[in-house]
């Protein structure tokens, strides 16, 4: 079972490496490349602790083979922002949206993908969007608060960038 050469662009840096075909993307990122932000929690595509963005979409890195990701752009929590100051990263702190923090990188990467599609979600929609991310500590309420608050911030930032007018509603 020969190794395969692949190219992964992780957080903007291109890497060339050889992997066994069976190696899961999450292990390539963690063990071979040192991006330990994505965590392994359940191995059954349930908990979402391993969530990264692949070509801009949130995916569970425990259910992608590294060879399948050949040529892809991967963003891990380490690359979400320069200084850990993405509005979601800030809101999770402000709203106490994490306790042990193990699920948090995956939770934030999913939420970041979601808010791009749906900048103004209601609480129930946020809960549905986070269905693939299990948190055992927080009871989710403060996570929902965090995502809601980040959405407002991002909305305000966008509006400021567009000339300072905040639009009401809209998807």
């Amino acid at each position: 079972m020969t190794e395969q050469d692949i190219t992964l662009t992780v957080n903007g840096t291109e890497h060339e490496l050889s992997v066994e075909p069976r190696e899961l993307l999450v292990h390539t990122l963690r063990d071979d490349m040192g991006y330990t932000g994505p965590n392994v929690g359940c191995e059954t595509t349930m908990c979402g602790a391993c969530t990264v963005q692949m070509d801009g979409d949130a995916v569970k890195a425990c259910t992608v083979l590294a060879v399948q990701a050949d040529g892809a752009e991967i963003t891990t929590i380490e690359g979400l922002s320069d200084d850990g100051d993405h509005p979601l990263q800030e809101s999770f702190q402000e709203e106490h949206g994490l306790q042990c923090g193990y699920c948090t990188p995956g939770m934030i990467m999913t939420a970041a993908d979601y808010l791009e599609d749906k900048p103004d979600p209601d609480r129930e929609e946020i809960r549905e969007a986070l269905e693939g991310n299990i948190c055992r500590c927080t009871g989710y309420q403060n996570i929902v608060n965090a995502v809601e608050s980040a959405a407002e911030k991002m909305h305000a930032e966008d509006a400021a960038a567009d000339g300072g007018v905040i639009e009401e509603g809209g998807d």
Binding site: M54, D57, A58, K60, D113, L130, G132
Partner: peptide
């Protein structure tokens, strides 16, 4: 189907 990440793959 599944969840957001599953639907992305």
């Amino acid at each position: 189907i599944g969840d957001r990440q599953v639907r992305n793959r």
